[in-house]
Amino acid sequence: MTDASTAELLDTALEAARRAGVLLRDGRPADLGVAATKSSPIDVVTEMDIAAEKLITGFISERRPDDGLLGEEGASVEGTTGVRWVIDPLDGTVNYLYGLPSWAVSIAAEKDGETIVGVVEAPMRGETYQAVRGGGAYVGGRRVSCRPAPAFEQALIGTGFGYLTERRVAQARVVGELLPRVRDIRRGGSAAIDLCDVGCGRLDGYYERGLNPWDFAAGALFAREAGALTGGRPGEKPSPELAVAAPAGLFEPLQALLDELGAWHD
């Protein structure tokens, strides 16, 4: 795509994420409750997830009516331009439900299957993370980069857990093996923010099983543009099986250990 058309996609993503962030921050009802559940009774959707996705898809469809859409809360449009928007209107729903600040709006634009624009809006942090493929990673107007790889035993690693009991049992076993070998482990509750934190140098690395494309599309691009490597199992891209992000030198041993520990299956 031309620079002009990529700039248009970035502008659209930034504005859609900003509007959704304002809606979620300022419109959260005091008596917010669960609107539905997905994979299990603790995998929740609130009325605000649904409202935010409607706002985002409506805004993008007005600006770019022929693009495709894929949203966590059900948006699915094929499109005819080769551009598809991958949208998580509220990443970190449980945090949001409880009034914890670590939640975000995640919007990515793909062209012919490759992510070329990513925006993660974190209203309670007052930060917007943005990246264009080949153009670097920025928080506001400031370019950021990941930390140099530390020694493995000094790495601060982020992760997350699924909502199915069987998966949690397997994930707990992996954490139990990993925790004694690293500095510490963090569980923030938003995959998009965790990936951006790798890009900003706030985490050394991150991994998680069970993520969907809308969870990692924008954040993984941000991490890559900040200098990190991303992948799934060795030789593969991030996928629902496994997503890993870390700088070169940490990425390889982390990915290898996670594969050995079976972090990619329940």
Rank of each mutant, 00 (worst) to 15 (best):
V86E: 11
V86L: 15
V86T: 08
V86G: 10
I87G: 10
I87C: 15
I87N: 14
D88F: 07
D88K: 05
D88C: 10
P89E: 04
P89M: 11
P89L: 05
P89R: 01
L90V: 04
L90D: 07
L90Q: 07
D91C: 06
D91N: 08
D91K: 04
D91W: 02
G92W: 00
G92V: 15
G92L: 08
G92D: 00
G92S: 09
T93S: 15
T93C: 07
V94L: 11
V94G: 06
N95G: 12
N95C: 14
Y96Q: 11
Y96V: 12
Y96D: 13
Y96M: 12
L97T: 05
L97W: 14
L97I: 07
L97N: 04
L97H: 05
Y98I: 07
Y98V: 08
Y98F: 13
G99Y: 14
L100P: 06
L100K: 13
L100R: 13
P101V: 03
S102K: 10
S102I: 13
S102L: 15
S102Y: 13
W103N: 08
W103P: 15
A104K: 10
A104Q: 14
A104H: 14
V105S: 10
S106A: 15
S106W: 02
S106F: 03
S106E: 09
I107S: 04
I107T: 05
A108G: 08
A108E: 07
A108P: 14
A109H: 03
A109T: 04
E110Y: 12
E110W: 01
E110C: 01
E110P: 01
K111R: 11
D112P: 00
D112A: 01
D112F: 02
D112H: 01
G113K: 02
G113R: 02
E114P: 00
E114C: 02
E114W: 02
T115C: 03
T115S: 03
I116Q: 06
I116E: 14
V117P: 03
V117N: 00
V117T: 07
G118I: 07
G118R: 00
V119M: 12
V119G: 06
V119E: 14
V120E: 14
V120W: 13
E121N: 09
